[in-house]
């Protein structure tokens, strides 16, 4: 019984994990290229979730169609935010970009709250289940997982097979060297930031398949924390590391929930969230040298 439940957790965890991973790639991309930590990460995910709501509830369209739109909206927000603020702060003390991205997150939350209100919403996209024997898998979640893998692959191809992608990789490796070799570093910064935000907003669409009634302007905070845990698991500056970090984290989250539920007198949901915070601290504690790159 417990074994079957755990098998179910593993499968569900990996499926959710793929989406988590994709939802963290934007964070890692931005940090890898610009060395900017997007503290408002979760708020961008939330924007994606609201775009999905609009597609499904208002327009009556398939939520998967929201993905390209969310990506485009993310690109636009990313470019706007980059050119109005981030660009001017790249040489300022770190505090500046931390507070600016944090405030941008608050700004998005408040904007969405003013437009849609702050109550919890959701939508019900029921397109059946696949019965694996030990667990039933909603098809919508499977789509979300496949979508994440597909987007990760597209990003990989774009990074490795296009000029722009190569330029961006060279900036990650050595921005000074890239500049000398004629790479438009400013352009690469703007593009990475915009794509990073685009990916993050798009991931919000996929995440809604897992939270039937959890969409609210302030839903992002929890995802920011999760994204940080995932990012440090996979190496903060590597989008692919983040993807695999997501798989690991999805598994840990799902399994620990089941295990905590066996303990008497505790709230497994809350403890699972506490655990994710502890994982973050422990990784930072045992691997600070591996994570902080010496100059």
């Amino acid at each position: 019984m417990i074994f079957e439940q755990l098998m179910g957790n593993i499968v569900q965890g990996l499926i959710l994990g793929a989406v988590y991973g994709m939802a963290t790639m934007g964070l890692s991309l931005i940090f890898g290229v610009l060395k900017v930590v997007n503290v408002g990460h979760g708020a961008f995910i939330m924007v994606g979730a609201f775009i999905t709501l609009f597609f499904f509830n208002t327009l009556g369209l398939n939520p998967l169609l929201a993905i390209p739109v969310a990506f485009a909206v993310g690109l636009a927000i990313g470019l706007l935010f980059y050119h109005t603020a981030i660009k001017r702060l790249l040489n300022a003390p770190e505090l500046a970009t931390l507070l600016a991205t944090f405030s941008a997150g608050v700004l998005l939350e408040e904007s969405i709250k003013l437009i849609f209100g702050s109550e919890f919403r959701g939508y019900n996209w029921d397109i059946g289940n696949i019965d694996l024997g030990f667990t039933a898998l909603p098809v919508s979640k499977l789509y979300a997982c496949l979508g994440s893998v597909l987007i990760a692959l597209l990003l990989y191809i774009w990074f490795n097979r296009t000029r722009a992608g190569t330029a961006m990789r060279s900036v990650v490796e050595d921005s000074e060297g890239a500049r000398v070799c004629g790479v438009n570093v400013q352009g690469a910064y703007a593009m990475s930031f915009a794509i990073g935000i685009g990916l993050t907003v798009a991931s919000g669409v996929l995440l809604t398949m897992f939270i039937p009634v959890g969409i609210n302007p302030y839903m992002g905070g929890g995802y920011t924390l999760k994204a940080f845990v995932i990012a440090v698991l996979g190496g903060l500056a590597s989008p692919y590391g983040a993807f695999f970090g997501g798989l690991v984290f999805g598994f840990i989250e799902n399994t620990s929930y089941t295990l905590f539920a066996l303990l008497p007198g505790v709230e497994p949901f809350a403890l699972t969230r506490f655990l994710s915070f502890m994982i973050l601290l422990i990784i930072l504690l045992i691997r600070p040298t591996g994570i902080i790159k010496a100059k």
Partner: peptide, 8 residues
């Protein structure tokens, strides 16, 4: 990294 560690 400090900011990341404290956010949670």
């Amino acid at each position: 990294y400090f900011a990341i560690a404290t956010i949670g």
